[in-house]
């Protein structure tokens, strides 16, 4: 047997998967702009993705902001710490930490539940039932999730920006004894539009990625409980990896000179 055959087979299978996914994504996008729309479903997903992810995103960014302030302080000599720490915290949180950590946390929470829910609907014939009830499952199930994902992640990241910065403030003022008003004005001076905007663009891309991976893996799942389990894992892993790759690409686009 040709020793290269298994490698070739794996590569073909991978490309087959990529092609299949591309077709799915293009179809889903084309359905995003064509009626009918299901506002009730969009609202449900907005609440699920946006509102119910607030505690997770809030906790993550709060503690990250706090840790960042402590680490920065331990690494910096006393000179200039009152300016450096608010700057480090607000720049790091708005540019990188809030979008990436919110994206990864939401990928675990929402990507998994989308894949599991749609996957279960697939294996229990509920998706076929939608078809027989003259309802396109792409429009009814997938489109609302994509729209809600791309819209709600930026909102979550905006909240995360504020809470993360506040975490740094808590440590700076109550642990390190900085002057509160000076901390705030230093934060304000360090805050840049491009940092916040790039963070929100990342968030929208991450939200879309999470939703499309969750829907794709759920939609194409096969073979009962085990298939749904595999779909859930694949959705979270692939969304997380894509988030990290996209983060690099978008950072290059915004900040490379």
């Amino acid at each position: 047997m040709n020793p290269l055959a298994p490698i070739g087979r794996a590569f073909i299978a991978f490309m087959h998967g990529v092609g299949h996914f591309a077709v799915f994504a293009v179809q889903a996008l084309s359905h995003c702009v064509r009626p009918p729309f299901y506002p009730r479903q969009i609202l449900r997903q907005v609440i699920d993705i946006g509102y119910y992810s607030l505690p997770v995103v809030g906790m993550t960014t709060l503690f990250t902001g706090m840790v960042l302030a402590i680490q920065a302080y331990s690494g910096i000599t006393d000179v200039g710490a009152e300016v450096a720490i608010p700057t480090i915290v607000v720049v790091a949180v708005t540019r990188e930490l809030a979008p990436v950590l919110a994206g990864l946390m939401v990928a675990g929470r929402i990507g998994a539940s989308m894949a599991a829910e749609i996957g279960t609907m697939r294996v229990t014939e509920q998706i076929d039932a939608l078809n027989t009830l003259s309802t396109n499952p792409m429009k009814y199930l997938v489109v609302p999730r994509l729209i809600a994902g791309a819209l709600m992640l930026p909102c979550l990241v905006l909240v995360g920006d504020v809470i993360g910065t506040f975490g740094g403030y808590l440590i700076g003022v109550y642990r390190l004894g900085f002057n509160a008003s000076a901390y705030l004005s230093n934060t304000w001076d360090a805050l840049e539009t491009i940092g916040v905007i790039s963070g929100l663009v990342k968030a929208a891309a991450f939200g879309f990625t999470i939703a499309v991976m969750g829907c794709y893996h759920g939609y194409t799942s096969r073979g009962g409980a085990q298939g749904v389990g595999a779909a859930t894992t694949n959705a979270v892993v692939s969304a997380s990896i894509l988030i990290l790759i996209l983060n690099y690409v978008i950072t290059e686009l915004f900040f490379s000179r």
């Binding site: 014939e125 009830l133 003259s134």
Partner: peptide, 21 residues
């Protein structure tokens, strides 16, 4: 076109396929 055709159809699935949500 398929959606419109499906309005003529009703189907009872083996596991009933009710929407749990």
């Amino acid at each position: 076109e398929r959606d419109r055709l499906m309005r003529h159809f009703g189907m009872l699935f083996q596991g009933a396929a009710l929407f749990d949500s």
